[in-house]
Design a binder for these strands. Structure first.
Length: 598
DNA sequence: CAGAAACGGGG
DNA sequence: GTGTACGTTTCTG
């Protein structure tokens, strides 16, 4: 059978000791889970004597297959061994011992999560429409299409891209209010008093055990108990075919709190597409709240990347985006408003609704860009919305490397030397602003300075030379440090940036040519997402924990950047301008004859 | 003063 | 989950 579905989420399960990829998808409002058992985990091995190495691996490990493959390592063609394991956990368990084998020089691509590998190798792009061909089956492990509202399809063909743009996603925002008279909320004793919900298809309500004055009770949904409130919330999610659920700091507050209260009250938060519970995924020291097939986006994390502010409270972020003040109730007084009732309770209801409506507005403003980033990067929205921009760039590059037949570099780790080198990098040129009120200023800035330098100077580790060279004219040589970058061939990272910037110009042309407003808007978001990604590429050289970390490349970029900005200031001075402030890629200047200071 | 711990957001 | 944030501020010995 054939189905057109939009891919929302992915994981894998184990069936008969083999990994099976599960793609959580939807066809309209029908939940579809696609199964693919044809993908196997692998890594690459670098060795001097490949045949000897094959023997050694075969004698020591239980692997599915070992094959010689031609790949590129920093553009140099090399023969690697591709070692395929039966299960991702087998790979994880054996990789250290494999690395330690005498004939093994190096292992590569051993730390790429299985589901990400699948998305990249099969070119399956989350949040896009695909054509799925396969056999409908009734049940698989804990999935049962007779008991659950799902259809299970075992894929028989590779997924193909659908030309259709996915329908608009159904977004629900939510927010909890808690009665906490003794300092910060404690989920063991402080009950939930309000659950606000708002959607982009008309839901706007506050679920509570109390209600407000008669004249304004249109948005309060009154329940008999906290237990009923949570059950109502679960019902709303289940019955409205929600694709994306958003909150503000919901990874760290709302969902952990809701889970605790649900447990105390004996309620299942079985909101997952397959009826599974909420789960918390460890991300370093923090947790991320996750459901199968229901994408949870914590906007707090998104906003921290989206804009530069001194603080990221919901209030501050909302003001920045929309220029409006939010209704405010101080957190430590919420319980008083609740207990006092009357007008104060009305205010609390208004506050609860305002919070959740604002959260939805922020989601509607920022999710389109994140959806486009998700499609460009090719990883799940859940992950992309929680990645630092450098990580986004890295996963994008890992996928590009796969298509360029490049083996990706290993992470070097933030060791002391790397960290020190990174800190040593001078950064952009800054001229401290001249004090005072300035009028009639002119502004100058470079368009995408760092990406342009990377491309024009071909700054990439695969074309970099540290020693002496015969033909200096074949190289771009950085100011200050004399780092050499071969002009030909184009380096891996410059080529990727070049490609995506060309894609950006193509989209911009298409945008100009279009006379459909909706299409124009969508294209505009796409080109913005690409611009963001391109501007982040510099970062991947500058931070030691990234795979393409190269402090030489980072140093070269900033040194050229300083040279360009300084020379343009100088040029401006020749025409009678005087820079009163400069930072990295631009400056402000006054028109004035050179004064005594110079 | 250096290294450890806390913080952010949320109520 | 083929895993273990992060950069900055405040506290403590």
């Amino acid at each position: 059978m054939q189905r057109n579905v939009v891919i929302l989420d992915i994981d894998y399960v184990t069936y008969e000791n083999k990994p099976v990829i599960r793609l959580f998808s939807k066809d309209g409002d029908k939940n579809i889970i696609l199964l693919d058992d044809t993908f196997e985990p692998y890594l690459y091995v670098m060795a001097d004597d490949l045949d000897k190495c094959i023997d050694e691996i075969q004698n020591n490990f239980d692997v599915v297959c070992i094959e010689k493959v031609n790949k590129k390592d920093f553009q140099i063609e090399k023969e690697f061994l591709k070692v395929t394991f039966n299960h991702p956990q087998e790979l994880a368990k054996n990789r250290d011992a494999l690395r330690d084998l005498e004939s093994v020089v190096q292992i590569r691509e051993f730390d790429i999560p299985f589901y990400r590998r699948y998305l990249m190798d099969r070119d399956v792009i989350p949040m896009t429409e695909v054509v799925a061909i396969g056999d409908k089956i009734d049940s698989f492990l804990d999935l049962d299409s007779n008991k659950q509202d799902i259809e299970i399809i075992k894929l028989t063909d590779e997924l193909k891209r659908s030309p259709d743009y996915p329908r608009e996603f159904r977004i629900l925002s939510f927010d909890l209010e808690v009665r906490n008279p003794h300092g910060m909320p404690n989920s063991e004793i402080d009950e939930i008093i309000m659950i606000g919900v708002s959607s982009n298809f008309g839901i706007n309500q506050v679920i509570s055990t109390k209600t407000n004055s008669d004249c304004r009770d249109d948005f309060v949904n009154q329940m008999n108990s906290e237990k009923e409130m949570i059950e109502e919330f679960v019902k709303i999610i289940k019955e409205n075919n929600i694709d994306i659920i958003v909150g503000y700091n919901s990874d760290n507050f709302d969902f952990p709190y809701l889970k605790d209260r649900a447990k105390i009250l004996g309620i299942d938060l079985d909101i997952g597409m397959d009826g599974s519970d909420i789960r918390f995924i460890r991300r370093g020291y923090a947790n991320a709240a996750s459901f199968k097939g229901l994408i949870h986006v914590d906007l707090y994390l998104v906003m921290r990347r989206y804009m530069t502010l001194e603080r990221y409270t919901l209030e501050r972020v909302y003001y920045e985006l929309f220029g409006e003040e939010k209704i405010d109730v101080p957190g430590d007084r919420i319980w008083e408003f609740w207990d006092n009732g009357g007008e104060e309770l009305d205010n609390l209801f208004d506050y609860s609704l305002d919070d959740v409506v604002s959260t939805l507005k922020i989601a509607e403003q920022t999710l389109p860009l994140n959806l486009e980033l998700t499609r460009i990067i090719g990883q799940p929205l859940f992950d992309v919305s929680r990645m630092a921009t450098g990580q986004q760039a890295e996963w994008f590059l890992v996928k590009q490397a796969y298509f360029d037949n490049e083996v990706v570099p290993n992470k070097q780790g933030a060791n002391f030397a790397n960290r020190a080198a990174a800190e040593d990098n001078e950064g952009g040129y800054v001229r401290e602003p001249e004090k005072g009120l300035h009028e009639n200023l002119v502004q100058f800035d470079f368009r995408s300075l760092y990406p342009s330098i990377i491309i024009s100077k071909n700054i990439s580790p695969d074309v970099m030379y540290l020693g002496d060279v015969d033909n200096e004219e074949d190289y771009n040589i950085s100011p200050e440090h004399g780092l050499k970058f071969k002009k030909e061939p184009q380096g891996f990272i410059p080529s990727v940036i070049d490609k995506i910037l060309q894609e950006r110009f193509r989209i911009k042309r298409e945008m100009k040519a279009s006379d459909d407003d909706t299409e124009k808007k969508a294209l505009n978001v796409q080109q913005q997402a690409i611009k963001r990604l391109a501007n982040t590429m510099y970062g991947i050289y500058g931070f030691p924990r990234f795979r393409w970390y190269s402090f030489e490349c980072a140093k070269a970029i900033t040194s050229w950047g300083r040279q360009y900005i300084k020379s343009s200031i100088k040029k401006a001075e020749e025409y009678g301008f005087y820079a009163i402030y400069a930072d990295t890629d631009g400056f402000y200047a006054k028109y004035k004859k050179k004064d005594k200071r110079n």
